[in-house]
Measured scan of single mutants.
Amino acid sequence: MKGKVVSYLAAKKYGFIQGDDGESYFLHFSELLDKKDEGKLVKGSMVHFDPTPTPKGLAAKAISLPLE
């Protein structure tokens, strides 16, 4: 699924993505496929991810940034 980063707290390594389906997904650095892309996780960045339901809500897994 595609989505847009709505927040990312680099110090805490987490944030949120708004998916194309309108839902909010929890984003964690550990799910970023290329850790070098962390600096690109800023508000408004477009990402691809696997939407995954968890006991705490919806989460983004296997997060990647589109090729530039």
Rank of each mutant, 00 (worst) to 15 (best):
V6H: 07
L32G: 01
L41H: 01
I17C: 03
D34G: 04
A10P: 15
A59G: 05
G22S: 05
L9I: 14
D20V: 10
L58V: 05
K43R: 11
P53L: 14
F26W: 08
S30D: 10
F29R: 09
V5Q: 00
S64K: 12
L65C: 08
L41T: 02
F49S: 01
A11S: 13
L65T: 07
S24I: 15
L41K: 01
H48A: 12
F16A: 04
L27A: 05
A10R: 13
A59T: 11
F29S: 07
K4C: 13
E31F: 10
T54D: 05
S24H: 11
G57H: 03
Y8V: 06
G44E: 04
L32K: 00
L65I: 13
Y14E: 05
V47L: 05
F29W: 14
K43M: 09
T54E: 05
K12S: 09
G15R: 00
I17E: 00
V6Y: 08
A60L: 01
L33N: 07
F26C: 04
T52N: 10
K4L: 11
A11K: 12
K12V: 08
K36R: 13
K13D: 02
K40F: 09
F16D: 02
A60S: 03
V5Y: 02
A11G: 10
L32R: 00
L41W: 01
S64H: 15
L65V: 14
H48Y: 15
M1N: 05
P55G: 09
L67R: 13
D34A: 06
L41G: 02
L65K: 04
V6K: 13
L32Q: 00
D34T: 06
I63L: 05
Y25E: 00
E38Q: 06
K56S: 09
K2L: 10
H28M: 07
T54A: 07
D50Y: 15
K35P: 14
K40W: 07
K12I: 06
A59P: 01
P66R: 12
E23I: 11
S45P: 06
K56C: 12
I17N: 00
E23Y: 14
M46C: 13
T52C: 13
A60P: 01
T52W: 15
D20R: 05
V47E: 01
A10L: 09
S64Q: 09
I17H: 00
L58M: 11
Q18C: 13
E68N: 12
K36F: 08
K43S: 10
S64P: 01
G3R: 01
E31R: 05
F16G: 01
F49A: 00
E23A: 11
S24P: 06
Y25D: 00
F26L: 06
V6A: 09
E68K: 10
G3H: 01
G39Y: 14
F16Y: 08
K36M: 11
Y8Q: 01
A11H: 13
V5T: 03
L41P: 01
F49N: 00
Q18Y: 11
A11D: 12
E31S: 08
K36G: 12
D37K: 07
E68Q: 13
V5G: 00
D21F: 03
E38V: 10
S7C: 14
P55W: 09
L65Y: 05
D20K: 05
G39R: 13
S45I: 15
G44R: 03
V42R: 13
I63P: 02
Q18V: 12
L9E: 12
H48N: 11
P51H: 04
E31Q: 12
Q18I: 14
V47H: 00
E31V: 03
A11I: 11
P66S: 15
K61M: 10
D34F: 07
K13W: 04
E38F: 05
G19F: 02
I63F: 01
P55M: 09
L65N: 03
G44N: 07
Y14T: 05
K43P: 14
F29T: 06
A60F: 00
D20G: 05
S7P: 00
K43L: 08
F16Q: 04
D20S: 10
P55R: 10
V6E: 07
M46F: 10
I63K: 01
T54K: 05
P66L: 15
V5R: 01
P53H: 14
A62T: 07
Y25T: 00
S30Q: 08
S24M: 15
P53A: 12
V6F: 07
G22N: 07
F29G: 04
K2V: 11
K13Y: 04
P55D: 10
G57Y: 04
D34C: 11
V42D: 05
L27G: 01
D37T: 08
K40A: 07
K13A: 05
A62K: 14
L33T: 08
K36N: 13
L41S: 01
L33Q: 09
S7L: 14
K43D: 05
T54L: 06
K2Q: 11
S30T: 10
K36A: 13
Y8L: 08
H28T: 08
K56D: 07
K35A: 10
Y8W: 07
P53C: 13
F26M: 05
Y14L: 04
V5W: 02
D21I: 02
G39Q: 13
F16R: 06
P51M: 05
A59S: 09
G19N: 03
D34S: 08
L67D: 13
K61C: 10
L58Y: 08
D34M: 06
A60K: 01
D34R: 07
G19R: 00
G15L: 03
F49V: 00
H48L: 15
A60M: 00
Y8P: 00
K2W: 13
K2G: 10
L27C: 03
F26Y: 09
L9Q: 12
G22F: 05
L58G: 04
H28V: 06
F29P: 06
H48D: 07
P51S: 07
G3Y: 01
H28Y: 07
L41N: 01
L27M: 12
L32N: 00
V42E: 08
K35D: 06
T54V: 05
L33Y: 05
G39M: 13
I17G: 00
Q18P: 02
G3P: 00
G19C: 03
E38W: 07
K12Y: 11
K36I: 07
M46H: 11
K12E: 07
E68A: 12
L33M: 10
K56H: 11
L33V: 13
H28I: 05
D50S: 15
F29E: 04
Q18E: 11
V6D: 06
D34Y: 08
T52F: 15
K43T: 10
H48V: 14
G3L: 01
S64L: 10
K35T: 08
E68I: 12
K4D: 03
M46N: 09
S24D: 06
G22L: 05
G3Q: 00
D21Q: 03
G3I: 02
E31L: 04
S7E: 08
M46R: 15
K36D: 12
G57P: 03
F49E: 01
E31Y: 09
T52I: 13
S30H: 08
G22C: 08
T52G: 07
K35L: 07
M46E: 12
G57K: 03
L58E: 03
L27V: 05
K43N: 08
G57C: 04
L32I: 06
A59L: 13
K4M: 12
Y8R: 01
D34E: 08
K13V: 02
G44A: 04
T52P: 02
K36T: 12
S30R: 11
M1K: 06
